[in-house]
Write a protein that binds this DNA or RNA. Sequence first.
DNA 1: CTGTTAGCGCTTTCAT
DNA 2: ATGAAAGCGCTAACAG
Lengths: 345, 345
Amino acid sequence: MATITEVAKLAGVSKGTVSNVFSGKRPISQQVKTRVLEAAATLNYKPNYWARTLAIKKTKMIGLNFLSDEHQFSQFHLSLINGVLSECYKSGYRLLINALSNEYQTDIEHLARDPIDGEILLDPSLDDQRIEERLRENLPVIVIGNPPSGLSESLSYVDNDNVEAARKLTSHLLKLGHEHISFINAPSQRTVSVDRRTGYEKAFVEAGMTYRDEWVISIPPEESSAEFGYTTATRLLKKEKCGAMITDNERCAMGVYHAAKEMGIRIPEDLSVASFSEESFVSRFSPPLTSVQLNGGHLGQAAARQLLAELKMEEAESTRSAGRIIVPTDFIQGASSAPIKINIR
Amino acid sequence: MATITEVAKLAGVSKGTVSNVFSGKRPISQQVKTRVLEAAATLNYKPNYWARTLAIKKTKMIGLNFLSDEHQFSQFHLSLINGVLSECYKSGYRLLINALSNEYQTDIEHLARDPIDGEILLDPSLDDQRIEERLRENLPVIVIGNPPSGLSESLSYVDNDNVEAARKLTSHLLKLGHEHISFINAPSQRTVSVDRRTGYEKAFVEAGMTYRDEWVISIPPEESSAEFGYTTATRLLKKEKCGAMITDNERCAMGVYHAAKEMGIRIPEDLSVASFSEESFVSRFSPPLTSVQLNGGHLGQAAARQLLAELKMEEAESTRSAGRIIVPTDFIQGASSAPIKINIR
DNA sequence: CTGTTAGCGCTTTCAT
DNA sequence: ATGAAAGCGCTAACAG
């Protein structure tokens, strides 16, 4: 690739002028401009992104960070990414996905701050190192989910009200007369699992009912949701007389459906299922899944918008505001939950 | 953030030494190394990605490029991205998603070669400008899909055999006795739509049957698949006596299911549906969708692997090989297709 | 409106 | 095994 110097020479102008033709940062006479553009065209020149970045210290890229050991996106993440992208699209930012293995993240030889202007952090956990690390690097950051305690004050984040979401789901099942409600919860180190458990317990207390600790089971971090849903449901449905189940996500619910079908247990007649989920999915279950919609697309969009706004503020040297955005969840009544009285088992 | 100069000063060594501690490119005595690392730790230093990039001309990032006007990923893309990421994960590459609007892509002020070492191009179209552009920039590129004619010789790409996939689907329906088979095809400027149409016609010829040109309908580029599937099916099912339909993707198939349900047309008794699709999806339809699986995850993985291999070759200055990889498709017999004899309409 | 010059933070010869 | 100095390609003052 040609450099700015060659273009300047060919066009008979200075480097600075060429630079300004491409950045538009100061007025250039029409004739010079066309001469430069022609020279650039014949030399097949495009400005070098890295050199520019080094000079202006802005990459026009934002990062998306999720825990490095699970390098696979889910349905929820897909919507979320689409939400983020739609904002990037409007603002001229690129999206960098860092899915490096821990090996690369920690090796001295690969140690480097990601080449981004700001970052969106997914799936915060209770002992999350990432947030403090970014703060130390002075990298604008926004968390999707509930940040671990202590940090939530100084930080922007967007989240659902997961306490309320879990309460709604649990309360729905309690009202249907269920007493024994198993809850296949998110991995226990995620902050979201704490919130949801709180909501679950709250619903029981409100209803004047009692739950048992062992009814709440966390998905092991490394395990596939679908698989764990399947094996857990199989185990539970064999031993206990659990008439209702809440699942962490739609893949997990699929596992439960699968297990139930295999054992000849009918949904919702013999077993009620309700789940957290991503919008577009639930209608594809049969029976359609009763669920709380997380609206991943909105979460992603809100997060990106907030981050990009902060970046703009920073440029204008205003103070950074710690915005907190709660994206509402929607309760969708499907056909997978029914009153306990029709349970025949 | 501290710079390498400050670290060097604090550790009482030269810049070059600090550099080599972090790159591991030449041996450093243990005592100097620890002194440097300590200095770096107290100053909170990390090597600057852009400065390094400018010097070594490698970004360790690859790009994922899709047509800029549709900045939303589909289910198929999700699997594909996951496939790409799993390879990046292993090789220490980051993934850059460029979803800039056309405005940004073409403005002189935003003109710049993406800061990537190589790129994966999605959804090639017949008049695709992107490929030649990349070739001109001498950027290693790999296409997912069938490149436009003329370019396929000099280029690496990974693709399904879409001619065969369409033939299988069509032939399946023909064998069931269907004669009038509507085909809601991919947007017509995509190379994939040409291939699939070829396969569709091939099946008819093989069966000694005749098709009509108007049975093949392309999804307009800007339209949502689900919406177009719905409106088209509604229209077709009203006017014509079409007993079978092939759809471009699962969202489109959903639209067809929806339309059929609304009109009281039963699948598969009154209407057979078969579709191209992404694996995990089809089982969620009721009835389960007869389909050909594209294996997006494999496509993404193969593409990334090939690209990363080429980048490695380039470093070793060997010649670039134009690899062509065909990822097999799987025909899945669902319950959405049935012999025409049970059609009662 | 345009030219000149000094960096941006790192890597990489070439010395020692 | 380490240091010194010359860039990588661009931008940003400062002049004019």
